[in-house]
Design a binder for these strands. Structure first.
Lengths: 332, 332
DNA sequence: GCCTGGCTTCGAAGCGCTTCGATACGTCAG
DNA sequence: CTGACGTATCGAAGCGCTTCGAAGCCAGGC
């Protein structure tokens, strides 16, 4: 193994000088710096992560705490994971995976062993058992999602209430007077997941405000359930002409069911999705949508966590503003 | 921070004794052991991961090298990730995520810095740029998938050739004489991904062997493409009565398109999927399938890697035997 | 000519753990 | 009773790095 001492000898300097070149924590003359960097490359030196973490008390690793619950949409989750991993690398950090079934003990373990400098927690629920643990951990953390009591925490999420509201506004502006929210699977509401709840609240509030009639229904993700749900919805509420779909997995089926029922999109029924842009673009017809910006959220969460690690003050609550893109599934 | 010295003092023993209790590398009297364990709990001691890794030259972390390529099915990928993470925990290891866009340099970095003890590489292609890097890394690795040249490597995968073959056998046994393979997106074949290639080879070979006619077509994942593909397939090859689908994302659409074309499953067309069991079960009708055992593969891969870390001899190539489960989409 | 201050660089301490050899104490065979 | 051996524990060295204080050197001001 190549050590810092080897590099130092090769470059004709003290080990500490090499360290300062690598960490940039003291100024080093450009001549020495260049010589050291050449030696690093020549020897293929990689600092020993354990030694570094022991000496500096920083591991340069973030924990990504993954939930794994019913009704979650894997492609979106994966987008988050990848976005977080890449953002972390840009800040010279790696990502350690902590899965749900390790529970609170898992958080304590990775934080207590100094294996990670901070934690990123995904898919937070209103009453999440991990939240109190995070509070008394001595490491900073950032939540993607909002628990009921966010005091003392840093949270970031899409403004789902505003997203739901924007969808209604868009439909109302187009003249629709009866709209429906096709929501997440029932299980998601039952466990009181913040984002689903907030979308619904924003949707309903906007309908009230705009004076349009509205209804909401949870929806499972398999095609047959979607068929039954949508068929029933249109039978019970024949005046519905606008659908807001907040359920990525059910989306293709919703479109397909409307087609098979002979309801033309957008002529008979307008559809707005709350989902990642690429998915909305790929469907036929391309759907007007409010983007779930997984990439952006992941980056933002990492940036917040890095700021906390630097002891830079950070806003406790960040709501990213939703962006609605008009496509072929709604028309003037 | 609580250190091993604190625990030792609390238990009235030497630090080394605490270490031996924790690692089990020397025998300790049960009385002392109990006392130390009590102190560990009382103080809430977690060994410092960096210090441990520095002293023992083992980080107790595995790298999971994730690809992120076009045409990959995220839910299956996520199943792998979770299975690997959980299996690793059972062996007292954690999982560090290395994403594709870090490339070969990423592998060198995590291995060179002693951040990980071994590497798990997913979705290996026939001619994978990462393979030569793995060979000259000084850490053991296990590939999920097979490259063209697997010399000196440890690989594990489902026996996809046999899986393709079993599907044909099953259909032939039921009397079908013309079968089609509905495969992965074109991009997957273009980059010469092993599993897709092997399924196809097994499928075609079995068709020859059994004397049934066969055809194959790559298929994109969006509903419209599937509709065009399946409609075209049945027009060009009207005698086809058996479909083998090796494309998880397209699967719901395939079933739906058959329905909309008025082809009853299994009466007009028999369908076998190569996909995770839960997905096959959830469709209507439930599909006969050869399971892609993500969970089992993940566990097996971790077990192999742990064996290599222990310097236990391991088989270079492991092919898990496919398991075909009959469900309602094929009948006698 | 001497002191001050800034810029570089050095040397050594020490982070918390594992591990190796040594020690202490029985136990048992001869 | 003694020597050999096995078991349980201790003490110290050292893993590779960061970091702090100090030292060396040069320039500039008096």
């Amino acid at each position: 193994m190549v050590t810092i001492a080897d590099v130092a000898k090769h470059a004709g300097v003290a080990p500490s000088t090499v360290s300062y070149v690598l960490t940039g924590r003291r100024s080093i003359s450009s001549a020495t710096k260049a010589r050291v960097e050449a030696s690093v490359r020549a020897l293929g030196y990689h600092p020993h992560a354990g030694a570094r973490s022991l000496a500096s008390n920083r591991a340069n690793v973030l924990a990504l705490v993954l939930p794994m619950r019913e009704g979650m949409h894997m492609p979106v989750l994966m987008q988050f994971v990848v976005a977080v991993a890449n953002a972390a690398r840009r800040h010279d950090h790696d990502v350690l995976l902590v899965t749900a079934d390790q529970g609170a003990a898992g958080l304590r373990r990775v934080a207590g062993s100094a294996q990670v400098d901070g934690l990123l927690v995904m898919d937070v629920e209103m009453h999440d058992e991990r939240v109190p643990v995070l509070r008394d951990l001595d490491r900073p953390s950032v939540l993607i999602g909002f628990p009921a009591d966010a005091a003392g925490l840093t949270c970031v999420d899409l403004d789902f209430a505003e997203a739901g509201s924007r969808c209604v506004d868009h439909l109302a502006d187009l003249g629709h007077t009866y709209v429906a929210l096709v929501g997440a699977p029932r299980a998601v509401y039952q466990r009181d997941t913040g984002f689903a709840h907030r979308t619904m609240a924003g949707f309903s509030a906007a309908a009230m405000r705009r004076g349009v009639s509205s209804t909401t229904l949870p929806t499972e993700t398999d095609h047959e359930s979607v068929r039954v749900a949508i068929t029933g919805l249109l039978e019970r509420h024949p005046a519905v002409t606008g659908l807001v779909v907040h359920n990525e997995a059910a989306l293709p089926s919703v479109v397909e069911v409307l087609r098979s029922l002979g309801r033309k999109v957008p002529d008979d029924v307008a559809v707005i999705a709350i989902c990642p842009d690429d998915q909305a673009e790929r469907l036929m017809p391309p759907l007007t949508s409010v983007a779930v910006p997984a990439e952006q959220l992941g980056h933002h969460a990492v940036a917040l966590l890095m700021a906390k690690l630097d002891r830079t003050p950070t806003p406790p609550l960040t709501l990213l503003p939703p962006r609605l893109t008009e496509r072929a599934s709604t028309t003037r």
